[in-house]
Nucleic acid binder design. Structure first.
Lengths: 234, 234
DNA sequence: TCGATATGTTCTCTTTTAGTTCACCTTTTG
DNA sequence: CAAAAGGTGAACTAAAAGAGAACATATCGA
C-alpha cells in the first residue's frame, strides 16, 4: 500500500502531530527525511492523500491531518476505528442512525461518512474510518444512506466538485442516466453516470478531460446511487 | 493541522475556559501571545474556527467554545449523539455556551427559505414567502443564515446549478472572491462572485455565456455571502 | 435615551514563512 | 529496458503573522 518513503513520512507526521499537535511544514519534513528539496515531499504528500492516509486543506500552511495509519501498527495512535477492510467491504452495511435514544431532533438523521471517493481516476474501494454526519431527513432517499467526500473533478460538469459531500442511497441497481457509485473488479470505486450499453456498462464522467470507461457488465457492481449533495464554503 | 501560533492560542483558550469558565477577550489573548495588536488574534481565531477547533458567536464578547483539541483528545467525536436542541430551534443559533468545554453538540437549526434568486439575469429583490428548512448546524456560518433556491445557470462553473438550495450568511460585507448575494439599485438581487475594482464593484458570473457586470460601489449592496449548498437528486 | 466602556471587526501595509509547479536528473524495480 | 518512485533547484504564488488605527457593536449605568 505504501512505499518505504511514504511510510516514513507518514510516521513522522503522526509523531509530530501526537507530540505537539502542530503539523510539520514542508521544510521540516524535508529535513526529517534527509532531503534537500521540498518538492519531493510535495509528491509524497500527494501520494499519501490520494491513498487516503492523510487529509489536508489546500494551500494552507501546516494543515495536515492523519486519517488512518497503515495496518501493522495501530498501536501508535490510541485513536479509534480501523475496520480492516480488505475483501468484503460492504459498502452497504445497512445500518444507519435510527438514534433510538436521543430524541432525535425534529427530523434529522445521522448517517455514516464512509470516506473519500475519487471521482477522477478511481482509487481503492471505499474505506472505513467512519464518522457520522447529520443531515435533514428531507435529503434522504428511501433506503439506507451513507455519505462520501468527493475527491477529484471528473464530475465537475454536473456540479459535483472536489471536496463536496455526497449522499448515496445504498442499493445495487440503478437506471440509465443516474449517477452511481460503481465498484469495478471489486477494487476500484468511482462515482459516474451509469449507462448500459449492450453487454457493457459505461461509466461516464462529466468532464471533457476524462473518458468514458466501458466494462463488461460482470465487472461492475453498483453500490448505490447519488441522492444528495452538500457543500460548504469557507 | 495547526500552526504553532494557532496551537498556542488554542491551548490558552482551553486553559482559561477550564480554569474559570470565561472566554478570554481579544485583548487578553493578544497579551497572552505577546502581540501588540489584536488583529492578529482575530486572524488566528478565524483559522481555528475554519479548522473546526472552536466555535463562536459573531459579534459577541467572550463567546468562544472549544469543539475539540488537537490529537490529545479522544472522547470527542464518536461517542455521544444528538443533543436534541432543546425545543425551540432558534433560527439564528441553536444554543451553545454553558456546557463544559468540548461537547460535540450536533444538532440542527431551522432557517428561513427566502425564495428564489436568479443567478442569471437578476430578478426582483428577495422575497418573502418564507418557509423554513432544516440544516445541520455544521453547515452554518457564524451569523444568521437563510436559504435561497437557485434559478438559472450563471454560476454553473462553480458547481452551483439550477434548483440548488444555497445557504447565505447574512451580512453586508464580503471579501474579494467570495460569492455573495448582491442587491443592485435596491431592486435586483443576484448571486455572483464579488470583486472590488477601484470605485466599482464587479459581479462576476461563473459561466462564459454571461458577462461580468460592473457597478459603482454605491449602487451595490451586499446582502450576504454564500456559505453552503445543498442539492437533491430525484 | 445618552454616553462611557469594553470588545470585536476591518483595513491597509509590511515582512516572513510556507506551499506549488516545473524541468530535469537518478535510483529502484518489475 | 521501461516505468515508477525519488531527488534537486529555482521561480513563483499564497498564506501566516505583526502593527496600528478606524470603526462597529454590545452592555450597563446615569
Amino acid at each position: 500500500m505504501l512505499t518505504a518513503k511514504q511510510h516514513q513520512l507518514l510516521q513522522f507526521i503522526n509523531q509530530r502531530l501526537t507530540d505537539s499537535g502542530v503539523s510539520p511544514s514542508f521544510d521540516e519534513m524535508k529535513d526529517a527525511l534527509g532531503l534537500k528539496s521540498k518538492s519531493g515531499v510535495h509528491r509524497l504528500i500527494n501520494a499519501l492523500e490520494e491513498r487516503g492516509f492523510i487529509r489536508r486543506m489546500a494551500n494552507r500552511a501546516r494543515a495536515l491531518e492523519i486519517v488512518k495509519l497503515p495496518e501493522a501498527q495501530g498501536a501508535a495512535s490510541a485513536s479509534t476505528i480501523q475496520v480492516a477492510s480488505t475483501s468484503a467491504n460492504n459498502v452497504v452495511e445497512g445500518n444507519f442512525g435510527k438514534a433510538p435514544a436521543a430524541a432525535p431532533a425534529n427530523d434529522m438523521v445521522s448517517i455514516p461518512m464512509h470516506g473519500r471517493i475519487a471521482a477522477g481516476t478511481p482509487i481503492e474501494a471505499l474505506e472505513n474510518s467512519d464518522s457520522m454526519i447529520d443531515i435533514p431527513v428531507s435529503m434522504m432517499g428511501r433506503g439506507a444512506c451513507y455519505a462520501l467526500e468527493i475527491s477529484g473533478d471528473s464530475m465537475i460538469e454536473l456540479g459535483i466538485m472536489d471536496g463536496d459531500t455526497v449522499l448515496i442511497e445504498s442499493g445495487n441497481t440503478a437506471r440509465n442516466g443516474e449517477v452511481v457509485v460503481a465498484l469495478v473488479d471489486s477494487e476500484e470505486a468511482t462515482l459516474k453516470t451509469l449507462q448500459r450499453n449492450g453487454q457493457n456498462i459505461d461509466l461516464i464522467p462529466a468532464n471533457k478531460d476524462y473518458q468514458t470507461q466501458s466494462y463488461q457488465a460482470g465487472r461492475v457492481q453498483i453500490q448505490g446511487r447519488l441522492v444528495g449533495l452538500m457543500r460548504q464554503y469557507h
